[in-house]
Design a protein around this nucleic acid. Structure first.
Lengths: 148, 148
DNA sequence: CTACAAGCTCAACTTAACTTGAGGTCAAGC
DNA sequence: GCTTGACCTCAAGTTAAGTTGAGCTTGTAG
């Protein structure tokens, strides 16, 4: 029936498959939101499940939490996102995914030829050159994948 | 003539595009090897360039250094790897890449439909299910609770 | 021969994305 | 009304993949 029950953090964890600590973490990072009961416990609306699902899916393709958070900024603050809202988001990512797929294909098709051929030893190789682009960034853990 | 000059770390860094510190790091992790001059400086054979190139390429598609190192175990210790040796390796990775590509495609094709459709909220969605596989032994209770 | 760029080692710091732990609260069954 | 399990907060630990810095040695160009 109409009124959808709210979820506790434990329930969200069970249904989404992510740990409670991770949910706390996502909330601290602004990726999900909750309100509190009188006893200071978190309660989530149902749309948190979708958010979490998207977070995991996006992460799997190498999108960082920071980027996901940024993308989520486009979602409405007040109301529950409509299908329309989500579609905007997914469309934006679709482009990134398309790009990534084509990159992977290039790699896959290039790898067998290229590894054996010696061209990798330096700058004639398409694989190497593609990679050069990102080789001069700052400190810390380098982010894998995803550049767009 | 035949004897190819050996390379210093600096030269390898310049030609491969990775930092000297990263080369040290790779060596510590057993991904590359060097021998030392009388003055304790590293010298690399030319094949190190190929190794490094492969490391970066592999990393870009999300393969961890640990996995790369494992794959490199299949390369001969004593001699310079032949084209044959590299091909074995690349063939193995090709399968991994194929898999990843198909995953990404599923994601891309599923995303637009799936994010908006609400199925993500639980277990009917192919995206969610695909993901379940991967996360099935972490911390959370998960599973059971199939109501609707 | 001497300057100084390039190397060397080892320890500590960085970022991302969490997890673990300590110490304390809330809620529901018996 | 008490016990038990789910919650809460905050701090600290963890892994991956490197980077940065200090202090010291090598090697090469002038």
């Amino acid at each position: 029936m109409a009124t959808v029950k709210e979820l506790t953090v434990g329930q969200v964890a069970a249904r989404s498959g992510v740990a409670v600590s991770a949910l706390h973490f996502y909330e601290a990072r602004g990726l999900i939101r909750s309100h509190r009961t009188s006893g200071n416990q978190r309660r989530y609306g149902r749309d948190v499940l979708r958010r979490v699902a998207i977070i995991r899916v996006a992460q799997e393709v190498g999108i960082s939490l920071a980027d996901i958070a940024a993308a989520f900024q486009s979602l409405p603050e007040g109301r529950t996102p409509t299908r329309e809202d989500w579609n905007l988001l997914s469309t934006a990512w679709r482009d990134g995914l398309d790009h990534k797929i084509s990159q992977l294909k290039k790699l896959r098709d290039g790898l067998t030829d290229c590894i054996g051929c010696g061209c990798m030893s330096i700058d004639k190789c398409p694989l190497r050159n593609k990679e050069d682009r990102l080789s001069s960034q700052g400190a810390g853990a380098r982010r894998l994948l995803v550049e767009r």
